[in-house]
Nucleic acid binder design. Structure first.
Length: 922
DNA sequence: TTCCTGGAACTACCT
DNA sequence: CCAGGTAGTTCCAGG
């Protein structure tokens, strides 16, 4: 953590110093390195680390910083709200843990930053209890120069690639680039919001003292963005990419790889890009800002979210102030850039015809000459969006700082609310490159499109459903660095949407209307693939693009509560394979009729999926934590029953017929060397244990009981698990392993909740695994944030968790629960999850811990509670009962930071080693 | 004309 | 260092 801190700080400096592109790069690089180290540390699971983690789950450091930067101003507010009022809440995002720890000033600062990011210092001060901390944080934040950090990642990554391609400009790239800027800009923070919102937002903010003043500043908010811009610039500098040209140049085809080698020398160029990018993104910003003001206002009025947005806006306004402060650390140049970007980038306005005029104009204006070319596209993008009854005008606001970072793990249900994916997306969707045309929207197996519905929401105000592309690996769910959601427009698209950049992640915002039963058909979301080389060049980026081709659609909804709190729910889809090749060659197991059976085996299991061949084999394997194969056997496949999409296998007897507790193993379908499906979970049960059937949708429930994996979920999750397993403790991950998860948490240290979040990051893997639903998600660990956020200034309230399901559970599910999707109704989640959740919860969420059901949230908010909860959860939750094995300490004891989850598996299978960045044994 | 798609060529990298 | 294979990225063409 400390390191992290230092890093961040350094980054700032760098920033300041960085004026020089190259230097900036270097700095960035160094920072990145630091960042990584920090992350690793976090993973390592040091208390301190844990703290850091909260910031950026996936990329904690970076992300965090980003947020921080952006958020910094905001943060103060939030904190106020959250932290002050809710310790728990704060913990939630913030690292209570820190406090618990006694958190050194350092830590606390970070955390807060990360979590909310964005409060004006003033606000911070206001915050009472945590104020001190917060202030520190703020200060630190300011000092941190978060912006820089942000800049790093974002800029580098996105901008480069995206910016380059013309398309990129338009679509994703633009978004990307914009994203950079956006990030900061990110609606929330940024600019546009602030502008629009500000007025109302201010009012909103009023609730939060902090906000008040600032509101006016909204416009200023951009200032905040500037920071970002600065970052971005530098980052960009790193990458040259003029545009596609570069990439292509790199290689004809494979160029991408080569790109990685691209040198910063280009930076200068990149710089431009950066600037450009902003422009591109600008569209958004420009539009956004102007429009926003209008729109936002409307929104605010209309939606709760707005409320949030309003808050955000207020924050932004404040931020502005804050920005200024921050500005100190940042080079003037940078600031300007940032500002611009922010403005431009922040939002892409879509649709609304309303915006069209303005947007288009704005966009053009903002854009640099270069952009001009692309401008059209951008603008077009905005304009294009089909109108809906529902007007988007102001959407995004809520993105604001108050909202949890994208890498935070959130529950899918809380109290009466339950966000579910009613219709899951197909397991394969070929993502398109910026150099390609769109490959259309993600589709559902049925041929339609994914459907998401929010249950339990009885208000008349529409809400905004956020969608972004998340990872599908074992680690905690977080925005996928190599993929971005791509907004699809056209006659065939019935759902309105608009893009927003948050951090480096593009978010598609879709209206959830009461008249539609709070149900949205996701026919407007495609997936953009970013060149690996572009992303890997980002500072702070630790993930590897190669074979990291699985993603999940992550949906979020933020519901404002009468008490001022905001309930944030998240649901992640089943994994989606995005590569052309794998989609054509690799077998895929989508469903398994049985999750487990007695050790004697002999039962038949039906597998549904894709690419099954007559020569397909089904192999059951059991790996030790260290990855060693303990057992492997080929199951008998009923050749006669093999179809491309289904096959029947006879479950082989387990090596030990006398197991006293469930044993988790994996199995996969193999079509040949290197052509094997992801590992699926399977549990051998003691003779007297009832067999659980996986039913496609309900599984969770059953699982809950047994802790068995969920079928569908399993599919992908397993893979992840697999990787993890080898490394850390597979078991933990294993479905059955849920218990294990808890243990981990426990192990995790309870580190104070605060820390926990961070920690979670580490543990995430485990979590993810644990979480049946979304293996991927695993929301886990660390970052799980309580579903409910308190608004600034508010006391910590506890939300009654949803009675139905343990809120905590729900939360867990949400993320992982693609399965859930199927059964919309099912809110209920398995306690098991809860257990798992605990793990996750421990950290951030109280909610998670919520295992306890209702109060999870509360816990989350109150640090103390959180911890307690977490621990309790873990301990109790771990459901030792569930699986002794899982409980097996090993899992708990060991925390591994893995790289791309999937990768791990894949690599492992291939012989490639999953990368274990660090393995800590507690 | 634009958007989608499906296929496949190219190239870099890994084994 | 070379060959074979794999995977990422870019192109092309048809609906």
């Amino acid at each position: 953590m400390q390191d992290t801190f230092c890093l961040s700080v350094s980054s700032k400096f760098s920033f300041g110093a960085t004026t020089g592109k190259e230097r900036g790069l270097q700095v960035l690089t160094s920072l990145a390195a630091d960042m990584k180290s920090a992350e690793e540390d976090a993973y390592s699971y040091t208390p301190n680390v844990s703290l850091s983690l909260p910031l950026g789950m996936g990329n904690p450091c970076l992300a965090t910083q980003y947020h921080t930067l952006q958020s910094s101003p905001v943060i103060s507010c939030h904190q106020t709200g959250y932290s002050n009022d809710n310790h728990a809440a704060s913990g939630y995002y913030l690292p209570h843990s820190l406090r618990p720890n006694g958190a050194p000033a350092l830590e606390s600062p970070r955390i807060e930053i990360t979590a909310y990011s964005q409060y004006p210092e003033d606000e911070v001060e206001e915050s009472s209890s945590e104020d001190h901390v917060i202030k520190r944080g703020v200060n630190s934040i300011v000092t941190l120069t978060l912006p820089n950090a942000d800049g790093y990642r974002d800029p580098s990554c996105l901008s480069p690639a995206s910016s380059i391609s013309s398309r990129s400009c338009n679509s994703e790239a633009s978004s990307y680039e914009s994203g950079f800027y956006n990030y900061d800009n990110s609606p929330q923070n940024s600019p546009w919001q602030s502008p629009c919102v500000s007025p109302r937002g201010s009012s909103m903010l009023l609730s939060c003292p902090h906000a008040s003043g600032p509101a006016g500043s909204p416009h200023h908010s951009p200032s905040t963005s500037p920071q970002i811009g600065a970052v971005a610039e530098e980052g960009w500098a790193a990458q040259p990419r003029g545009s596609r040209p570069n990439s292509p140049s790199c290689s004809g085809g494979g160029g991408g790889n080569g790109m990685g080698k691209r040198k910063y020398s280009f930076n200068g160029t990149s710089y431009h890009q950066t600037s450009c990018s902003p422009n591109q993104s600008p569209t958004p910003s420009p539009h956004g800002s102007p429009r926003v003001s209008v729109t936002d206002d409307n929104w605010l009025a209309n939606t709760n979210q707005y409320t949030n947005s309003a808050i955000v806006a207020a924050i932004n306004a404040l931020t502005t102030d804050g920005v200024i402060d921050m500005g100190e650390g940042i080079p003037i140049k940078t600031r300007k850039t940032m500002l611009d970007h922010s403005a431009s980038m922040s939002l892409k306005v879509e649709p609304g015809g309303e915006e069209l005029g303005p947007d288009g104009e704005l966009c053009h204006e903002d854009y640099p000459s270069r952009l001009a070319l692309k401008k059209e596209s951008y603008c077009a993008g905005f304009l294009d969006v089909p109108q809906h009854p529902y007007s988007w005008s102001k959407p995004k606001t809520y993105l604001g700082p108050s909202l949890p970072a994208l890498d935070w793990q959130l529950p899918s249900c809380s109290g009466p609310y339950n966000l579910q994916i009613e219709v899951q997306p197909k397991s394969h969707h070929r993502a398109h490159y910026e150099t390609e045309g769109s490959r259309g929207a993600v589709k559902a197996l049925s041929g339609g499109h994914p459907v998401v519905q929010l249950y339990g929401y009885m208000e008349s105000e529409p809400l905004t459903l956020q969608l972004f592309i998340g990872t599908a690996d074992d680690r905690l769910l977080r925005p996928h660095a190599f993929y971005q959601v791509h907004r699809i427009t056209g006659k065939t698209v019935s759902t309105a949407s608009h893009e927003v950049m948050q951090s480096n992640t593009k978010i598609l915002e879709i209206p959830l209307l009461p008249e539609n039963n709070m149900r949205a058909i996701i026919d407007c979301a495609g997936i953009l693939k970013l060149r690996n080389s572009d992303i890997e060049l980002r500072k702070g980026e630790t993930d590897i693009g190669r074979k990291n081709t699985r993603v999940r659609l992550v949906f979020r909804v933020h519901i404002n509560q009468p008490n001022g709190r905001t309930v944030s729910l998240q649901a992640a889809s089943n994994p989606i394979e995005c590569s052309q090749r794998s989609a054509q060659e690799l077998p895929l197991v989508e469903k398994q009729s049985v999750d487990g059976c007695p050790a004697t085996g002999g039962k038949m299991m039906l597998l549904n999926g894709l690419n099954f061949l007559p020569e397909s084999k089904v192999v059951f394997v059991e790996k030790a934590q260290d990855g060693h194969h303990l057992w492997e056997t080929e199951a008998k496949v009923d050749k006669d029953s093999i179809k491309s999409n289904a096959l029947v296998v006879e479950i082989p007897p387990y090596r030990n017929q006398r197991i006293s507790s469930p044993v988790h193993v994996n199995f996969y379908v193999c079509n040949g060397k290197r052509k094997r499906s992801q590992c699926q979970r399977f549990t051998y049960l003691p003779p007297n244990v009832p067999i659980i059937k996986t039913e496609p949708h309900d599984e969770y429930d059953s699982l809950g009981t047994v802790g068995l994996s969920m079928h569908s979920t399993t599919y992908y999750s397993q893979p992840r698990l697999t990787p993890i397993m080898p490394v850390a403790d597979p078991d933990a991950c294993l479905v059955g392993g849920y218990p294990s998860c808890p243990p981990r948490h426990a192990a995790m240290p309870s580190s104070p909740p605060s820390s926990s979040p961070t920690l979670h990051d580490l543990s995430p893997v485990a979590f993810s695994k644990c979480l049946p639903n979304s293996p991927t998600h695993a929301a886990p660990p660390g970052p799980m944030a309580p579903p409910i956020q308190e608004n600034p200034g508010r006391p910590n309230l506890v939300h009654p968790p949803s009675p139905d399901h343990n809120s905590s559970l729900g939360m867990l599910h949400s993320q992982g629960s693609p399965n859930h999707l199927n059964s919309p109704g099912r809110h209920s989640y398995h306690p098991i999850y809860t257990n798992s959740s605990p793990s996750s919860s421990p950290v951030s969420h109280p909610s998670t811990p919520g295992g306890p059901v209702e109060s999870p949230f509360v816990q989350a908010y109150s640090p103390g509670q959180t911890q307690a909860a977490a621990s309790s959860v873990q301990a109790g939750g771990s459901s030792p009962s569930l699986l002794p094995e899982d409980a097996s300490p090993p899992s708990m004891a060991i925390t591994v930071k893995q790289e791309p989850q999937e990768l791990d598996q894949m690599y492992l299978d291939d012989g490639e080693l999953p990368q274990v960045k660090s393995l800590h044994i507690i």
